Simulated assay, not measured.
Amino acid sequence: MKKLIGIVAACLMIASTAFADTTIKVDGSTTVLPIMQKVVEAYMKAHPDVKISVSGGGSGNGIKSLIDGATDIAMASRAMEQKEIDLAKTKNVNPNQIVCAIDAIVPVVNPGNKLAEITTAQLKDLYTGKITSWKDLGGEGPVVVISRDTSSGTYETWEGLVMKKERVFPGALMQASSGAVVQAVSKNKNAIGYVGIGYLDASTKGLKVDGIEATAENAKSKKYPVSRDLYLYTNGAPSGAAKGLVDFLLGAEGQKLVKEAGFVPLN
């Protein structure tokens, strides 16, 4: 009887392990989210035994979830900070960085705005509250500044590359996602925001920065001044079903989906 119970227990343990290996949780950046959604849809179609849940709560939240052991893969639109890496190690989490795509953060205005290009210095003046009227840039009306919230990797990249570590001024309207930025700018003729290149559509107008257009080539070469890599983070090298998903994303089919999502593939 004891032998039978032992066999049953072993079988249950094997079944439990197998189930765990086919369940993946992905959380983090809303910039990487459209890429991951396309990749997950294609991967689950090819691997119906694998169950994957994807949510986009921002890069900071995704990294926190990885550190807390609440997600298998964290999506991030900025690199982990040293303090996050140090905290992870105190919890026996070894962050493994994987570059999955390339992006350009593009300032966007309402299509009714006549502005076609802007400088990084002007963007900084807008986002510190120094410029408050479009008249200063050849337009008309008050400027409505739209920004991502502080948990966003896009916000942190913008702060580093455009703001030069100065904070966005308190009068900016903070949004929880890139989609919310697009919606806010599309509905307000005086608004300016910034989004990843994959979020550009006809509802807003992307601006050249320092005379350089946000093209795939310019983003990849980093000639465009607000270019960046997009990341996945795992606890150590990915394994099991998570490795299968990551390998798929980095492979030819996955990188094709990166391009379909509007972002820049690695190859």
Rank of each mutant, 00 (worst) to 15 (best):
V108W: 07
D136V: 10
V162R: 01
V168I: 14
T119D: 02
Y155H: 03
E117V: 06
G160K: 13
S152T: 00
S147G: 08
K91N: 10
A104W: 02
Y127Q: 05
V162G: 00
E140M: 14
W158G: 01
M163G: 05
Q97I: 13
Q183I: 09
K89L: 08
Y127R: 03
G112L: 07
N190P: 12
D125Y: 03
A88P: 00
V106N: 01
C100H: 09
Y155D: 00
N113C: 13
T90F: 04
D125K: 11
S186G: 10
S147D: 03
D149I: 05
T132F: 04
N188A: 05
V144G: 02
A176S: 13
N188S: 05
Y155R: 00
V99G: 14
E117I: 08
P107K: 04
A104Q: 11
T154M: 07
D125P: 08
G160E: 14
N94G: 15
D103H: 04
W158V: 14
V185Y: 10
L173S: 09
Q175K: 07
T150H: 10
K130E: 15
M174Q: 07
K135D: 14
D149P: 03
P170K: 05
K187H: 03
R167I: 05
V185K: 02
C100W: 03
K165H: 14
Q175V: 12
V143F: 08
D125M: 15
N190V: 11
A172V: 06
I105E: 03
P170C: 01
A116H: 15
S147T: 03
P107M: 12
V162L: 00
W134L: 10
T120R: 02
N190A: 06
T157M: 08
Q122D: 13
V182F: 01
L137W: 04
K164W: 09
Q175L: 09
I146S: 04
G141C: 15
V185F: 02
Y127T: 05
S147Q: 12
N92P: 03
S178N: 15
A101M: 06
I105F: 06
G112W: 09
K124N: 11
K124S: 06
T132Q: 05
K114F: 10
L115W: 02
Q175F: 10
N96G: 15
V145Q: 01
V99I: 12
L123Y: 01
G138D: 12
S178K: 01
K189Q: 06
P95F: 02
W134I: 12
V181W: 01
T90P: 04
K189M: 11
K124G: 01
D149K: 00
